[in-house]
Design a protein around this nucleic acid. Structure first.
Lengths: 184, 184
DNA sequence: AAACTCATGTAATAGGTTACATGATTCA
DNA sequence: TGAATCATGTAACCTATTACATGAGTTT
Protein backbone atom coordinates (compact mmCIF):
# COMPACT_ATOMS: atom_id res chain seq x y z
CA UNK A 1 0.00 0.00 0.00
CA UNK A 2 1.26 3.38 -0.97
CA UNK A 3 1.42 6.36 1.32
CA UNK A 4 -2.01 7.82 0.71
CA UNK A 5 -1.63 10.69 3.17
CA UNK A 6 0.74 12.17 0.64
CA UNK A 7 -1.87 12.13 -2.12
CA UNK A 8 -4.59 13.35 0.20
CA UNK A 9 -2.42 16.37 1.01
CA UNK A 10 -1.67 17.05 -2.67
CA UNK A 11 -5.34 16.73 -3.56
CA UNK A 12 -6.58 18.99 -0.80
CA UNK A 13 -3.99 21.66 -1.59
CA UNK A 14 -4.84 21.37 -5.27
CA UNK A 15 -8.57 21.81 -4.69
CA UNK A 16 -8.68 24.24 -1.81
CA UNK A 17 -5.53 26.28 -2.32
CA UNK A 18 -2.79 27.16 0.19
CA UNK A 19 -3.22 25.60 3.62
CA UNK A 20 -1.26 24.69 6.73
CA UNK A 21 -1.01 21.22 8.22
CA UNK A 22 -3.41 22.31 10.87
CA UNK A 23 -5.90 23.48 8.22
CA UNK A 24 -5.67 20.18 6.34
CA UNK A 25 -6.35 18.21 9.51
CA UNK A 26 -9.28 20.50 10.35
CA UNK A 27 -10.71 20.10 6.87
CA UNK A 28 -10.47 16.30 7.10
CA UNK A 29 -12.19 16.27 10.47
CA UNK A 30 -15.06 18.51 9.56
CA UNK A 31 -15.72 17.78 5.88
CA UNK A 32 -14.48 14.38 4.75
CA UNK A 33 -14.10 12.33 7.91
CA UNK A 34 -16.87 10.03 6.72
CA UNK A 35 -14.48 8.71 4.10
CA UNK A 36 -11.02 10.06 4.96
CA UNK A 37 -9.03 10.72 8.13
CA UNK A 38 -5.61 11.99 9.00
CA UNK A 39 -3.73 12.57 12.22
CA UNK A 40 -1.04 15.07 13.10
CA UNK A 41 1.61 12.52 13.95
CA UNK A 42 1.62 11.32 10.38
CA UNK A 43 0.60 14.50 8.60
CA UNK A 44 3.47 16.75 9.71
CA UNK A 45 6.28 14.36 8.74
CA UNK A 46 4.60 13.83 5.36
CA UNK A 47 4.39 17.59 4.82
CA UNK A 48 8.13 17.88 5.51
CA UNK A 49 8.91 15.13 3.04
CA UNK A 50 6.62 16.60 0.38
CA UNK A 51 8.35 19.93 0.78
CA UNK A 52 11.87 18.54 0.59
CA UNK A 53 10.98 16.55 -2.52
CA UNK A 54 9.53 19.66 -4.13
CA UNK A 55 5.92 18.54 -4.48
CA UNK A 56 4.69 21.33 -2.24
CA UNK A 57 6.29 24.63 -1.22
CA UNK A 58 5.87 27.18 1.53
CA UNK A 59 3.91 30.29 0.64
CA UNK A 60 6.18 32.51 2.66
CA UNK A 61 9.71 31.20 3.00
CA UNK A 62 10.13 33.37 6.07
CA UNK A 63 11.40 31.00 8.76
CA UNK A 64 10.06 33.24 11.50
CA UNK A 65 6.42 32.67 10.54
CA UNK A 66 4.98 30.12 12.90
CA UNK A 67 2.09 29.11 10.72
CA UNK A 68 3.42 27.22 7.71
CA UNK A 69 1.17 27.63 4.72
CA UNK A 70 1.88 25.37 1.74
CA UNK A 71 0.85 25.34 -1.89
CA UNK A 72 1.16 22.55 -4.44
CA UNK A 73 3.93 22.91 -7.05
CA UNK A 74 3.73 21.97 -10.75
CA UNK A 75 5.71 18.86 -9.94
CA UNK A 76 3.25 18.03 -7.16
CA UNK A 77 0.29 18.56 -9.48
CA UNK A 78 1.82 16.16 -12.00
CA UNK A 79 2.34 13.51 -9.32
CA UNK A 80 -1.27 13.98 -8.18
CA UNK A 81 -2.63 13.63 -11.72
CA UNK A 82 -0.60 10.45 -12.25
CA UNK A 83 -1.98 8.94 -9.05
CA UNK A 84 -5.58 9.89 -9.85
CA UNK A 85 -5.62 7.77 -13.00
CA UNK A 86 -3.95 4.78 -11.39
CA UNK A 87 -6.34 1.99 -10.45
CA UNK A 88 -7.78 2.15 -6.94
CA UNK A 89 -5.79 -0.22 -4.76
CA UNK A 90 -7.61 -3.21 -3.33
CA UNK A 91 -8.13 -2.75 0.38
CA UNK A 92 -8.53 -5.97 2.40
CA UNK A 93 -11.68 -5.72 4.49
CA UNK A 94 -11.46 -5.78 8.27
CA UNK A 95 -14.68 -5.29 10.16
CA UNK A 96 -14.39 -5.83 13.89
CA UNK A 97 -18.19 -5.77 14.19
CA UNK A 98 -18.69 -8.62 11.72
CA UNK A 99 -15.77 -10.55 13.21
CA UNK A 100 -17.35 -10.36 16.65
CA UNK A 101 -20.78 -11.16 15.25
CA UNK A 102 -19.43 -14.25 13.53
CA UNK A 103 -18.27 -15.45 16.96
CA UNK A 104 -21.78 -14.76 18.23
CA UNK A 105 -22.34 -18.24 19.64
CA UNK A 106 -19.60 -17.46 22.16
CA UNK A 107 -21.61 -14.44 23.36
CA UNK A 108 -24.83 -13.82 25.22
CA UNK A 109 -27.67 -12.68 22.97
CA UNK A 110 -28.13 -9.52 24.98
CA UNK A 111 -24.47 -8.60 24.48
CA UNK A 112 -24.80 -9.10 20.74
CA UNK A 113 -27.93 -6.96 20.64
CA UNK A 114 -26.21 -4.26 22.69
CA UNK A 115 -23.24 -4.32 20.34
CA UNK A 116 -25.52 -3.96 17.33
CA UNK A 117 -27.51 -1.20 18.97
CA UNK A 118 -24.37 0.74 19.80
CA UNK A 119 -23.11 0.50 16.25
CA UNK A 120 -26.52 1.46 14.93
CA UNK A 121 -26.68 4.57 17.12
CA UNK A 122 -23.25 5.62 15.88
CA UNK A 123 -24.35 5.15 12.29
CA UNK A 124 -27.59 7.04 12.86
CA UNK A 125 -25.61 9.99 14.13
CA UNK A 126 -23.30 9.93 11.11
CA UNK A 127 -26.34 9.58 8.87
CA UNK A 128 -27.97 12.67 10.33
CA UNK A 129 -24.80 14.68 9.92
CA UNK A 130 -24.38 13.67 6.29
CA UNK A 131 -28.05 14.29 5.59
CA UNK A 132 -27.70 17.82 6.93
CA UNK A 133 -24.67 18.51 4.77
CA UNK A 134 -26.58 17.06 1.83
CA UNK A 135 -29.53 19.39 2.41
CA UNK A 136 -27.20 22.35 2.68
CA UNK A 137 -25.42 21.31 -0.49
CA UNK A 138 -28.60 20.93 -2.49
CA UNK A 139 -29.86 24.36 -1.42
CA UNK A 140 -26.67 26.40 -1.63
CA UNK A 141 -26.01 28.39 -4.79
CA UNK A 142 -22.54 28.98 -3.44
CA UNK A 143 -21.77 25.27 -3.24
CA UNK A 144 -23.16 24.65 -6.72
CA UNK A 145 -20.73 27.11 -8.24
CA UNK A 146 -17.67 25.22 -7.06
CA UNK A 147 -16.05 22.88 -9.58
CA UNK A 148 -15.92 20.08 -7.05
CA UNK A 149 -19.69 20.27 -6.48
CA UNK A 150 -20.86 17.17 -8.41
CA UNK A 151 -18.03 15.02 -7.03
CA UNK A 152 -18.53 16.02 -3.43
CA UNK A 153 -22.24 15.47 -3.83
CA UNK A 154 -21.63 12.02 -5.29
CA UNK A 155 -19.26 11.11 -2.44
CA UNK A 156 -21.80 12.37 0.07
CA UNK A 157 -24.45 10.18 -1.49
CA UNK A 158 -22.19 7.18 -1.21
CA UNK A 159 -21.95 7.78 2.52
CA UNK A 160 -25.68 8.31 2.87
CA UNK A 161 -26.59 5.28 0.77
CA UNK A 162 -24.21 3.02 2.70
CA UNK A 163 -25.45 4.24 6.04
CA UNK A 164 -29.07 3.75 5.02
CA UNK A 165 -28.32 0.19 4.00
CA UNK A 166 -26.49 -0.52 7.23
CA UNK A 167 -29.26 0.97 9.36
CA UNK A 168 -31.80 -1.25 7.65
CA UNK A 169 -29.55 -4.24 8.24
CA UNK A 170 -29.20 -3.46 11.96
CA UNK A 171 -32.98 -3.47 12.43
CA UNK A 172 -33.52 -6.62 10.41
CA UNK A 173 -30.66 -8.41 12.11
CA UNK A 174 -31.75 -7.63 15.63
CA UNK A 175 -35.21 -8.99 14.86
CA UNK A 176 -33.80 -12.00 13.05
CA UNK A 177 -31.48 -12.93 15.91
CA UNK A 178 -34.19 -12.46 18.54
CA UNK A 179 -36.65 -14.59 16.60
CA UNK A 180 -34.05 -17.25 15.95
CA UNK A 181 -33.15 -17.34 19.63
CA UNK A 182 -36.80 -17.65 20.67
CA UNK A 183 -37.42 -20.56 18.32
CA UNK A 184 -34.48 -22.67 19.47
CA UNK B 1 -5.87 -0.06 18.02
CA UNK B 2 -5.43 -3.47 19.51
CA UNK B 3 -3.94 -6.45 17.76
CA UNK B 4 -7.05 -7.94 16.21
CA UNK B 5 -5.29 -10.81 14.49
CA UNK B 6 -4.86 -12.28 17.94
CA UNK B 7 -8.59 -12.24 18.61
CA UNK B 8 -9.40 -13.48 15.13
CA UNK B 9 -7.18 -16.50 15.79
CA UNK B 10 -8.75 -17.16 19.18
CA UNK B 11 -12.24 -16.85 17.71
CA UNK B 12 -11.59 -19.12 14.78
CA UNK B 13 -9.96 -21.80 16.94
CA UNK B 14 -12.82 -21.49 19.40
CA UNK B 15 -15.48 -21.95 16.72
CA UNK B 16 -13.85 -24.39 14.34
CA UNK B 17 -11.61 -26.42 16.61
CA UNK B 18 -7.91 -27.29 16.21
CA UNK B 19 -6.23 -25.72 13.20
CA UNK B 20 -2.81 -24.81 11.87
CA UNK B 21 -1.73 -21.33 10.83
CA UNK B 22 -2.09 -22.42 7.25
CA UNK B 23 -5.65 -23.62 7.91
CA UNK B 24 -6.60 -20.32 9.55
CA UNK B 25 -5.28 -18.34 6.61
CA UNK B 26 -7.12 -20.63 4.18
CA UNK B 27 -10.34 -20.25 6.14
CA UNK B 28 -10.03 -16.45 6.10
CA UNK B 29 -9.41 -16.42 2.36
CA UNK B 30 -12.24 -18.67 1.39
CA UNK B 31 -14.97 -17.95 3.96
CA UNK B 32 -14.67 -14.56 5.60
CA UNK B 33 -12.49 -12.49 3.28
CA UNK B 34 -15.45 -10.21 2.59
CA UNK B 35 -15.08 -8.87 6.12
CA UNK B 36 -11.77 -10.23 7.47
CA UNK B 37 -8.28 -10.86 6.10
CA UNK B 38 -5.02 -12.12 7.45
CA UNK B 39 -1.58 -12.70 5.98
CA UNK B 40 1.12 -15.18 6.87
CA UNK B 41 3.73 -12.61 7.76
CA UNK B 42 1.60 -11.43 10.64
CA UNK B 43 -0.25 -14.63 11.47
CA UNK B 44 2.73 -16.84 12.28
CA UNK B 45 4.41 -14.45 14.73
CA UNK B 46 1.03 -13.92 16.44
CA UNK B 47 0.57 -17.68 16.77
CA UNK B 48 3.99 -17.96 18.43
CA UNK B 49 3.14 -15.20 20.88
CA UNK B 50 -0.27 -16.68 21.65
CA UNK B 51 1.37 -20.01 22.38
CA UNK B 52 4.07 -18.60 24.62
CA UNK B 53 1.51 -16.61 26.57
CA UNK B 54 -0.60 -19.74 27.02
CA UNK B 55 -3.72 -18.62 25.15
CA UNK B 56 -3.36 -21.41 22.62
CA UNK B 57 -1.46 -24.71 22.75
CA UNK B 58 -0.16 -27.25 20.26
CA UNK B 59 -2.25 -30.37 19.83
CA UNK B 60 0.80 -32.59 19.53
CA UNK B 61 3.85 -31.27 21.34
CA UNK B 62 6.01 -33.43 19.10
CA UNK B 63 8.61 -31.05 17.71
CA UNK B 64 9.20 -33.27 14.70
CA UNK B 65 5.71 -32.73 13.30
CA UNK B 66 5.95 -30.15 10.56
CA UNK B 67 2.30 -29.18 10.61
CA UNK B 68 1.56 -27.32 13.85
CA UNK B 69 -2.03 -27.73 14.91
CA UNK B 70 -3.23 -25.48 17.74
CA UNK B 71 -6.23 -25.44 20.06
CA UNK B 72 -7.51 -22.66 22.28
CA UNK B 73 -6.84 -23.00 26.04
CA UNK B 74 -9.19 -22.05 28.89
CA UNK B 75 -7.14 -18.94 29.41
CA UNK B 76 -7.47 -18.11 25.72
CA UNK B 77 -11.23 -18.66 25.82
CA UNK B 78 -11.49 -16.25 28.76
CA UNK B 79 -9.50 -13.60 26.90
CA UNK B 80 -11.71 -14.08 23.85
CA UNK B 81 -14.91 -13.73 25.89
CA UNK B 82 -13.61 -10.55 27.50
CA UNK B 83 -12.82 -9.05 24.10
CA UNK B 84 -16.19 -10.00 22.62
CA UNK B 85 -18.11 -7.89 25.12
CA UNK B 86 -15.81 -4.89 24.81
CA UNK B 87 -17.19 -2.12 22.63
CA UNK B 88 -16.26 -2.29 18.96
CA UNK B 89 -13.37 0.08 18.37
CA UNK B 90 -14.01 3.06 16.14
CA UNK B 91 -12.23 2.60 12.85
CA UNK B 92 -11.39 5.83 10.98
CA UNK B 93 -12.68 5.56 7.42
CA UNK B 94 -10.25 5.62 4.50
CA UNK B 95 -11.73 5.12 1.07
CA UNK B 96 -9.30 5.69 -1.75
CA UNK B 97 -12.17 5.61 -4.24
CA UNK B 98 -14.04 8.46 -2.56
CA UNK B 99 -10.83 10.40 -2.03
CA UNK B 100 -10.06 10.22 -5.73
CA UNK B 101 -13.65 10.99 -6.64
CA UNK B 102 -13.60 14.09 -4.46
CA UNK B 103 -10.64 15.30 -6.52
CA UNK B 104 -12.71 14.61 -9.64
CA UNK B 105 -12.32 18.08 -11.10
CA UNK B 106 -8.62 17.32 -11.50
CA UNK B 107 -9.52 14.31 -13.66
CA UNK B 108 -11.01 13.68 -17.08
CA UNK B 109 -14.62 12.53 -16.94
CA UNK B 110 -13.78 9.37 -18.83
CA UNK B 111 -11.13 8.46 -16.25
CA UNK B 112 -13.63 8.96 -13.45
CA UNK B 113 -16.19 6.80 -15.22
CA UNK B 114 -13.57 4.11 -15.84
CA UNK B 115 -12.58 4.18 -12.18
CA UNK B 116 -16.20 3.81 -11.12
CA UNK B 117 -16.82 1.03 -13.62
CA UNK B 118 -13.78 -0.89 -12.42
CA UNK B 119 -14.87 -0.65 -8.81
CA UNK B 120 -18.40 -1.63 -9.78
CA UNK B 121 -17.23 -4.74 -11.62
CA UNK B 122 -15.19 -5.77 -8.60
CA UNK B 123 -18.20 -5.32 -6.36
CA UNK B 124 -20.47 -7.22 -8.73
CA UNK B 125 -18.10 -10.16 -8.57
CA UNK B 126 -18.05 -10.09 -4.79
CA UNK B 127 -21.82 -9.76 -4.77
CA UNK B 128 -22.26 -12.85 -6.93
CA UNK B 129 -19.93 -14.85 -4.70
CA UNK B 130 -21.75 -13.85 -1.53
CA UNK B 131 -25.12 -14.47 -3.14
CA UNK B 132 -24.04 -18.01 -4.02
CA UNK B 133 -22.89 -18.69 -0.48
CA UNK B 134 -26.16 -17.23 0.76
CA UNK B 135 -28.17 -19.58 -1.46
CA UNK B 136 -26.14 -22.53 -0.30
CA UNK B 137 -26.60 -21.48 3.31
CA UNK B 138 -30.34 -21.11 3.02
CA UNK B 139 -30.71 -24.54 1.42
CA UNK B 140 -28.27 -26.59 3.48
CA UNK B 141 -29.60 -28.58 6.43
CA UNK B 142 -26.00 -29.15 7.40
CA UNK B 143 -25.27 -25.45 7.69
CA UNK B 144 -28.45 -24.83 9.68
CA UNK B 145 -27.39 -27.30 12.35
CA UNK B 146 -24.24 -25.40 13.22
CA UNK B 147 -24.44 -23.06 16.21
CA UNK B 148 -22.83 -20.24 14.24
CA UNK B 149 -25.52 -20.45 11.55
CA UNK B 150 -27.62 -17.34 12.40
CA UNK B 151 -24.52 -15.20 12.97
CA UNK B 152 -22.80 -16.19 9.76
CA UNK B 153 -26.03 -15.64 7.89
CA UNK B 154 -26.40 -12.18 9.42
CA UNK B 155 -22.82 -11.28 8.53
CA UNK B 156 -23.36 -12.54 4.99
CA UNK B 157 -26.43 -10.37 4.69
CA UNK B 158 -24.44 -7.36 5.79
CA UNK B 159 -22.04 -7.94 2.94
CA UNK B 160 -24.84 -8.49 0.44
CA UNK B 161 -26.83 -5.46 1.59
CA UNK B 162 -23.78 -3.19 1.45
CA UNK B 163 -22.79 -4.41 -1.98
CA UNK B 164 -26.32 -3.94 -3.31
CA UNK B 165 -26.33 -0.37 -2.03
CA UNK B 166 -22.95 0.35 -3.56
CA UNK B 167 -23.91 -1.15 -6.93
CA UNK B 168 -26.99 1.05 -7.05
CA UNK B 169 -24.82 4.05 -6.20
CA UNK B 170 -22.35 3.28 -8.99
CA UNK B 171 -25.10 3.29 -11.61
CA UNK B 172 -26.75 6.43 -10.30
CA UNK B 173 -23.44 8.22 -9.96
CA UNK B 174 -22.23 7.45 -13.46
CA UNK B 175 -25.48 8.81 -14.90
CA UNK B 176 -25.43 11.81 -12.60
CA UNK B 177 -21.86 12.75 -13.53
CA UNK B 178 -22.47 12.29 -17.25
CA UNK B 179 -25.62 14.41 -17.15
CA UNK B 180 -23.92 17.08 -15.09
CA UNK B 181 -21.02 17.18 -17.51
CA UNK B 182 -23.33 17.47 -20.53
CA UNK B 183 -25.25 20.38 -18.99
CA UNK B 184 -22.20 22.47 -18.20
C1' DA C 1 10.69 -34.56 -13.75
C1' DA C 2 8.17 -30.55 -13.25
C1' DA C 3 4.70 -28.10 -11.22
C1' DC C 4 1.74 -27.25 -7.71
C1' DT C 5 0.02 -27.14 -3.14
C1' DC C 6 1.09 -27.69 1.69
C1' DA C 7 3.46 -25.57 5.40
C1' DT C 8 6.27 -22.49 8.35
C1' DG C 9 8.81 -18.89 9.07
C1' DT C 10 12.05 -14.33 9.07
C1' DA C 11 13.72 -9.62 7.87
C1' DA C 12 13.00 -5.29 6.18
C1' DT C 13 9.96 -1.87 5.68
C1' DA C 14 5.97 1.03 5.61
C1' DG C 15 2.27 3.20 7.45
C1' DG C 16 -0.08 4.99 10.97
C1' DT C 17 -1.36 5.83 16.11
C1' DT C 18 -0.58 7.56 20.72
C1' DA C 19 1.44 10.19 23.86
C1' DC C 20 4.07 13.85 24.89
C1' DA C 21 6.17 18.55 24.52
C1' DT C 22 5.99 23.29 23.54
C1' DG C 23 4.59 27.84 22.85
C1' DA C 24 1.63 31.59 20.59
C1' DT C 25 -2.75 33.75 20.14
C1' DT C 26 -7.42 34.72 21.14
C1' DC C 27 -11.39 35.12 23.88
C1' DA C 28 -14.25 35.28 28.10
C1' DT D 1 -5.69 35.95 34.06
C1' DG D 2 -7.16 31.64 32.88
C1' DA D 3 -9.05 28.69 29.38
C1' DA D 4 -9.53 27.44 24.86
C1' DT D 5 -7.91 27.20 20.43
C1' DC D 6 -4.18 27.65 17.13
C1' DA D 7 -0.04 25.50 15.60
C1' DT D 8 3.93 22.41 14.95
C1' DG D 9 6.47 18.80 15.89
C1' DT D 10 9.02 14.31 17.85
C1' DA D 11 9.67 9.63 19.83
C1' DA D 12 8.10 5.31 20.84
C1' DC D 13 5.39 1.98 19.44
C1' DC D 14 2.41 -1.21 17.05
C1' DT D 15 0.33 -3.46 13.33
C1' DA D 16 0.50 -5.22 9.15
C1' DT D 17 2.56 -5.88 4.38
C1' DT D 18 6.04 -7.50 1.15
C1' DA D 19 9.54 -10.12 -0.18
C1' DC D 20 12.27 -13.75 0.56
C1' DA D 21 13.73 -18.50 1.99
C1' DT D 22 13.04 -23.27 2.68
C1' DG D 23 11.53 -27.81 2.18
C1' DA D 24 7.96 -31.71 2.20
C1' DG D 25 4.34 -33.96 -0.14
C1' DT D 26 1.22 -34.62 -4.04
C1' DT D 27 -0.37 -34.48 -8.61
C1' DT D 28 0.28 -34.31 -13.78
Amino acid sequence: MKNKTMYAVLGVLSLLGPMSGYDIKKFCDKSISYFWNENFGHLYPVLSRLESSGLIARDSPDEAVRRKSYHITDKGAAVLRAWLVEPVEYQPERSELLLKLSFGNRMELEDILAMLEEAKVRNELKYKQLDQIHSYYMGSEDAKKKPQYPFWLAALRYGITSLEASLKWFDETKIFLMDYHKNQ
